[in-house]
Every structure is written in structure tokens, then in C-alpha cells.
Design a protein around this nucleic acid. Structure first.
Lengths: 247, 247
DNA sequence: GGTCCTACTTGATCTGGGTCAAGGTCCATC
DNA sequence: GATGGACCTTGACCCAGATCAAGTAGGACC
């Protein structure tokens, strides 16, 4: 389950609890306290981290890799309801059980805190509680933005929306801007993309081919994507050019 | 804009800031402080309370009536991303602008607080901050539950899901259980239902007719609904019988 | 080099729900 | 009690995306 730290201190700064919730305004002692109780867990691609309904005795954040939140109906229909990229927070302080499966979509490293000590710390540290509310509001915005995608967009727009999110997140992680071409590896299988977009994997494949044929994206192999013109992609996604996706 | 209190003190207890955020654990002074700064606003059906992008200088909660959160694309496609029933909270402490339109779906009364004093109070009162995180997590759960509805359910299941939410909320408001038949008035037009479900109003109408023909619901006029068997309705919605909808 | 497997692509066909169009019902207003 | 309008229903037809099915690409392992 738990494991030794596998990251250097500099890599660890990706952990939002450490550098986003406990920011410059906070006392060093509090940061120190978080340092003491944190631990790392790694997962392999495909591994389920938490099953829906399970007790969830930790909170944490993604250090590297991608995790997804997934809901499944009895007959097997599944819908991904969230995508956790590096620095995203996982956990529900004050809640006992997970309301959906959390699955490692790629190999994954998480920085975790046992829930109880974290909640105690949160109760004593208004800044952490405040930062957590901020993050939850961000997630709520992203979820609602996604409701528009699921409810009203065409398959082509859905694909473009997803690529646009991943491209933008990639650009911000690598500190590059959105003006030049953006290059990244798709971290999701066609099936996972379908589950996120409320489509079938065949439709995903067809629409990716179509976007490629129309020059909106370039594909090298099955996963390596180049977006020559981010504005064009966002147009295809049906977003206003300035776009407000958050995820 | 603002208006005199139009409710007796007993009616006012519907305001969650007052009886949910400031609960028995909190000091009476804090409750008093909220009493002092609160005010009421009423809206007519169809009136837009806040436009997407507008500055939002208050927070509050629905006292009576129904409001909806709506996103619109440039070409006019709209998706409702949230339904605010009595006692639901509106507002985003720490955020400047509204990310979507808030519209009064029926005649509506809200209990409001100017944002700044409310935020100050929140900073001084951990219980309010904590309660707000709770409510935001509830909204997040509801939004994600709805993503499954939008992404993977059939039109019939979507209608059943919506009726099921409204029926359950009605049953809990009127303190009746879910065992007997449930009777309520639909607070939404067919078009509003369509916008919530990612359907057209014609499909909504057809599916309601179908559920009526099959005896899942009874209709008197266009809005007055009787659900003879809540279990049957939830089956139609594709939920597990114990169901976890929150909205 | 072969073979197996997983991930993906592409084609053919079907269908749920969209679109367009023509009523119907219930009020409010005169 | 006629007129108008908002809201809803129903029918006919169509199409985007689902479904079913066959085939390809590339990596791991022998």
C-alpha cells in the first residue's frame, strides 16, 4: 500500500497541498507538519485506486500520471466524471466513502495524507480549508463546463474539447504558451476518451481521423499529437476563443 | 432590487445559512450577526438574476421557488448545469464573476448577504467555512451524477431521472416518505426540462407521454404529476434501487 | 521470423432522438 | 364567446452516432 518516497524534494513541489494550499502566506511550521505526515503511493496503469462505496481513509494529490473518476451503471455503461492531472487533488474531507471509482489511467504517483490528521490540520489551519474550498469550486466549474460538452456538443466538438483541455494543461505544465504549436502524448486510450465524452470508441476513432484529415491536428503513431493552431482547435470545440475550460 | 422581508420569522428558517451553516454548535452571536446583514430579493418567473460574466456581489440561498444555472454557446445551444431548489445555496465566495446565467425558473424569493461581509464572517467563523465546503461537495456530487445522466442515459431514463429527483426533493421538503404515492407539480416547462437533460422539448414531451401510457406516472393537466410507485420510477431511471441522487 | 494480444481503424447498417410541421389546450383579455 | 398567445402534443421524416463486423499496426515473447 504505502511506499517510500520515490521522488527528490524538488520533484515533490508538484504536490498542491504543499505549494498551493500552504502558500507563502502560511507559517513554515504548518508546512513542516504536512511534510511529516505525507507519504507516497504508486499505481500501475489500469489499477483501481478506490472502488465506489469504499471507505476512503486518505486524501492526496496526483504527482505524476493521470487518474480518472468513473461511474458505472449496473448494465456496464460507464461515464468518466473527472480527470485528475498532475497537481489535482483527490479526496473529500468530511466524507466517509468514495462516490465513484478512482482508476489509474496511466502509471501514477500520488502524494497522500491520512485523512484524520489532514482534517485535524485543516481545522487548525484556515488557509488550508480555504484553499480546499477554492479547489472544490474549480472542480465544480469544470464539472459544469463538462455538462455542456456532454449535453449539447457534437462528437467532433467533444473530441476537440477534450484535446483542447489536454493541450492547454500540457502547455501550462511545460510553461509554454498557447501561441506556437503544441505537442503532447495522449494519455488516454480511445475507450477512455469515449467514456469521458459519452461516445463509443469507434466514434472517437472516426472523429480523430476526421480532425487529422482536416489538418486540425497531426498524429504520429496513435498517441503523439501536434496541434498546429490552438485557436483553430478551440473553434472546433465550439468554445469562445478566450475559452474558460478549467479541469 | 433589494426588498423588505416578506416572510415571517418561521418561514425564514428555510434559509440554510441560518439553520444549516450556523447550526446548534455555533454561538448565538454569529447567528445574530447573520440576521443583521441579511436581506431578501424576489424575482418573477423568467427573470435573469445574474448574467454569465457579471460581477456577483452577493451570496444567498433559495427560500422559495426554483432557479437554474444555465450555460449558453454562441449559436444558442443551452445546457442547464444546475437546479436550485429551496434551501440551496447560490454564490461563490472568493470568486468575482458568475460563470453562468442564473435564472428564476418560477417566481422566486432569495435570502441574500452582501458578499464582502459574508466572506469576513466566514473567515472568522470556521463552522460556516466548513459548512460551505460541505455544500460545495454536495453540488459537485450532484453535478457528477448528472454527467452520467447526460452522457450515458437514454431519453426515457433521463426523464425518469429528473422526475425522480424532483419527487424525492418534494417528498423530503414535505416530510413525507417515499413509500406511498408522491404527488407534485412540475416546476419546469418542457423546454427547461429539455435544457437540463440535453434533449429537445419534443423528445421530452414524447417520453413523458410514454411514461404516462406505461403507468409509471399519472398526469393531471400538463404539470400535476403523481408517482404511484417510486421504486418503479427509479428503476426506469436506471438507478440502483437505493439510489444516491443528491441535487 | 512467427504468433499472440492489445489498441486502433474502417466499413456497412441500424436506430434513437433531432428536425420540421401541423395541430390541440388552456388561459387571459377584450 | 371570440381572439391571441404560451405551452404542449403528435406525426413524418432524417441523420449523427451506435452497433456489428472485419481488418490493421505494433509491441512482447517464443
Amino acid at each position: 500500500m504505502s511506499s517510500q518516497p520515490q521522488l527528490s524534494h524538488s520533484e515533490c513541489s508538484d504536490c498542491p497541498i504543499r505549494h498551493r494550499a500552504v502558500c507563502a502566506r502560511c507559517e513554515p511550521q504548518e508546512l513542516g507538519e504536512l511534510e511529516v505526515i505525507k507519504y507516497y503511493r504508486s499505481f500501475e496503469a489500469g489499477q483501481t485506486i478506490i472502488w465506489s462505496g469504499d471507505q476512503m481513509n486518505f486524501v492526496g494529490s496526483v504527482v505524476s500520471g493521470i487518474a480518472s473518476l468513473t461511474q458505472t451503471m449496473e448494465d456496464g455503461r460507464t461515464q468518466m466524471v473527472g480527470l485528475l492531472l498532475p497537481s489535482d487533488f483527490v479526496g473529500r474531507p468530511g466524507r466517509e466513502n468514495a462516490p465513484y471509482d478512482v482508476v489509474a489511467t496511466t502509471d501514477l504517483v500520488m502524494c497522500c495524507f491520512r485523512k484524520k490528521p489532514f482534517e485535524d490540520l485543516m481545522a487548525r489551519t484556515p488557509h488550508i480549508a480555504h484553499r480546499l474550498l477554492e479547489m472544490t469550486l474549480d472542480e465544480l466549474d469544470a464539472a459544469r463546463e463538462w455538462m455542456l460538452v456532454l449535453g449539447r456538443k457534437t462528437a467532433r466538438e467533444k473530441i476537440a474539447s477534450l484535446l483542447s483541455i489536454i493541450a492547454r494543461r500540457d502547455a501550462s505544465l511545460t510553461k509554454r504558451g498557447l501561441s506556437g504549436p503544441i505537442v503532447f502524448d495522449l494519455p488516454l486510450t480511445r475507450e477512455a476518451m469515449a467514456d469521458y465524452l459519452g461516445l463509443t470508441l469507434e466514434t472517437v476513432s472516426r472523429q480523430i481521423s476526421a480532425l487529422k484529415k482536416d489538418g486540425v491536428i497531426h498524429l504520429e503513431g496513435k498517441r503523439h499529437v501536434t496541434v498546429p493552431d490552438m485557436g483553430r482547435l478551440m473553434e472546433e470545440a465550439g468554445d469562445d476563443a478566450d475559452g474558460g475550460f478549467l479541469v
